[in-house]
């Protein structure tokens, strides 16, 4: 058997186990439940509003889905790497042959699968509670899945790289969250990009978050809603181009960054992390 592809298979098994563990974890289920509850409550209280003849939930749901996928893909691996570097998970991976391949494969699968429950707990109740208009029906939802997959590939490596660079879990608050607040606040998901300064608009369009939201809107909203977007179009090619470019950059950049992090792992580094954690608790 080829050792490299074998390690990827073991990593896929690892990711699947992480996912099933997560589905049994009260903590993670609580996260899904409250995120869904908050989102649905927001949509529910605004369900009678309308925008250019379309019901409000129908209009904002795509943007919300885009934001949640991007949010999960950024925050998930960032937390995992910052924490698992300190607690010795990474060192364990390093101590077995091709363990880092297995670890990274597992992370990618686990974090990707984690987006599914979140989409399901929001989309399924929405279909029953609200009037969600999709002109294309099933095809629209398949497009949502496809764009979500591409968005994951584009954003996951960013989360991994940021998580690798943060010095321990206590720094997540500043160095992990700050870029997130900036990236998401200006992503056009929470309010229209056109209202921001022009240089911000340019900067935001270089990042994947905006395009993920735009992609979701293009999948679910009627064609004439594109008039409200920048340039009055869904810019499908640009959307695929930017997300694809980020996915390629990330997949090229993440391995050397992760290797650098792994190289620094040793028993005494983990021991130092443990002392640091104990100190924080006290």
């Amino acid at each position: 058997m080829n050792p490299a592809t074998h390690a990827i298979r073991v990593g896929l098994n690892r990711g699947w186990i992480e996912f099933t563990n997560s589905l049994r974890s009260p903590q993670d289920l609580g996260f899904y439940f409250f995120t869904a509850l908050g989102t649905l409550a927001y949509l529910f209280f605004n369900r009678h509003d309308d925008w250019e003849g379309l019901p409000y939930p129908s209009v904002v749901l795509p943007s919300i889905l885009g934001a949640l996928v991007a949010f999960g893909a950024y925050i998930g691996p960032m937390y995992s790497l910052a924490i698992e570097r300190e607690d010795g998970t990474l060192l364990r991976a390093k101590a077995v042959p091709r363990g880092m391949t297995g670890y990274v494969t597992g992370q990618v699968l686990f974090q990707s699968l984690s987006a599914l429950p979140l989409l399901v707990v929001i989309v399924v109740p929405s279909l029953f509670l609200f009037e969600i208009i999709t002109e294309r029906g099933m095809i629209a939802w398949l497009m949502v899945l496809g764009i979500a997959a591409l968005g994951l590939l584009a954003v996951l490596p960013i989360g991994m790289i940021v998580g690798s660079l943060i010095k321990g879990p206590n720094k997540i608050g500043t160095w992990g969250m700050l870029p997130m607040v900036i990236m998401f606040g200006t992503s056009g998901i929470f309010y229209p990009l056109q209202e921001l300064w022009e240089w911000v608009q340019v900067a935001v369009q270089l990042l994947p978050m905006y395009w993920l939201g735009l992609g979701m809107r293009s999948a679910l909203l009627p064609a004439d809603a594109a008039a409200a977007e920048l340039g009055g179009s869904w810019r499908t090619l640009e959307m695929l181009g930017v997300l694809g470019a980020w996915a390629i950059i990330g997949l090229l950049l993440a391995p050397p960054v992760l290797r650098r992090v792994a190289r620094r792992q040793s028993g005494s580094a983990v021991e130092a992390g443990r002392h640091e954690a104990m100190r924080r608790v006290q």
């Binding site: 074998h6 186990i17 607690d87 364990r92 101590a95 091709r98 983990v270």
Partner: peptide
């Protein structure tokens, strides 16, 4: 290794089996 809290959600047999496969 001296572990302290990694893989907290994993079961003993599942973790050992997954790591074992790396040696196959």
């Amino acid at each position: 290794l001296q572990s302290w809290r990694d893989h907290g959600r994993w079961k003993v047999r599942t973790l050992l089996a997954n790591l074992a496969r790396h040696y196959e």
